[in-house]
């Protein structure tokens, strides 16, 4: 009897011990990281627009999307930093117009912009043409009208009441060229298309067509070629139904206030890039052969276009 009670008491004590150990094991917090105390009341106004005189500011219009731009221009920036001996800040804006405005006010030292943007900049504030790239042996490019491979659109006329994508209001290949084509048949985008969207970069327009968001778009032939090389699965879904006349490749410009000395230095650096190993690597990343002395007349088609057709840059 007594030994039975002993056994029961022992069993009970054992079960309590098991229970306790289970509780302890389950209550151990494995997130043992200590919290960092932060006083949220100590605040500071953030001002990121502080202008640093020592920094060389390089703007790139959003021909391709900002993220792709960062990847593509990184080696070029590195090269220029080495050559200029100054830190270079890459500036991007959503629209071409914004970049032009920055060049005009002198906040930007060097800009890679679109052809139409240049024509406007030259006309409005005498921007200086520094150089233009040669891409796959050509100094020219054009606008392509693209549709999906499985689309039944074959001509400009088929675009009636379709959804169309422009890239930027101030883009030649992404907008102005199309407006020009429509003008020849006496139409305007607003009455031709059922709806118009702005994608603010050529690769976005490409994707919009490939994904069926829009029925057609006009884009830069350089971007198309680049994408065909990098992402053939996208361009395979695309069919080109129309091309514009060739114009000179998008140029590199400087503000009107740039000194002659700086202008020459930068032009020299750019034109000689392909003669150096580091320069070649930077050019290869952008798929450029080299920088050429620009031919200002190669943009004449655009100049005549904006003479004939009024293009509103303030649409969104």
């Amino acid at each position: 009897m007594k030994s039975k009670i002993h056994l029961l008491v022992l069993l009970w004590i054992l079960s309590v011990a098991i229970l306790m150990s289970i509780l302890i094991v389950n209550s151990i917090n494995f997130n043992t990281a200590d919290a960092v105390p932060v006083d949220f009341s100590i605040t500071k106004d953030i001002n990121t627009t502080s202008y640093n005189q020592d920094v060389f500011r390089l703007a790139v219009s959003s021909v391709i999307s900002p993220v792709e731009t960062v990847k593509g221009y990184r080696p070029l920036i590195k090269y220029l930093e080495d050559k200029l001996g100054r830190r270079i800040e890459l500036v991007q804006r959503t629209t071409y117009k914004e970049v032009n405005d920055l060049v005009e006010t002198g906040e930007i030292d060097l800009a890679f912009i679109c052809t139409l943007s240049y024509v406007e900049a030259e006309k409005n504030f005498r921007a200086k043409l520094v150089a233009a790239p040669q891409v796959q042996g050509s100094a020219y490019y054009r606008s392509l009208v693209i549709v999906r491979e499985d689309s039944n659109i074959n001509t400009i006329a088929d675009l009636q009441n379709k959804k169309f994508a422009f890239t930027d209001p101030m883009s030649f290949s992404g907008r102005a060229a199309m407006i020009g084509e429509l003008a020849t048949i006496g139409r305007s985008p607003e009455d031709m298309f059922s709806s118009i969207i702005y994608t603010y970069s050529h690769d976005n327009s490409l994707r919009a067509v490939a994904d069926g968001v829009v029925d057609a778009a006009c884009i830069d032939s350089l971007v198309f070629d680049l994408t065909a090389e990098l992402y053939p699965e996208i361009t395979n879904k695309i069919r080109i139904i129309h091309t514009s006349p060739f114009v000179g490749n998008p140029p590199v410009i400087l503000g009107a206030d740039t000194s002659e000395e700086e202008f020459n230095m930068i032009r020299k650096i750019l034109l000689n890039m392909h003669n150096e190993e580091a320069g070649r690597r930077a050019l290869e990343t952008l798929m450029y052969d080299k920088f050429l002395m620009p031919d200002n007349d190669s943009y004449n088609y655009i100049r005549s276009l904006i003479e004939e057709v009024r293009i509103d840059y303030y649409v969104r």
């Binding site: 932060v38 006083d39 949220f40 009341s41 100590i42 605040t43 500071k44 106004d45 953030i46």
Partner: peptide, 8 residues
């Protein structure tokens, strides 16, 4: 943040 960014 509505009342400024906590710098810490």
């Amino acid at each position: 943040f509505n009342d400024g960014f906590p710098i810490d």
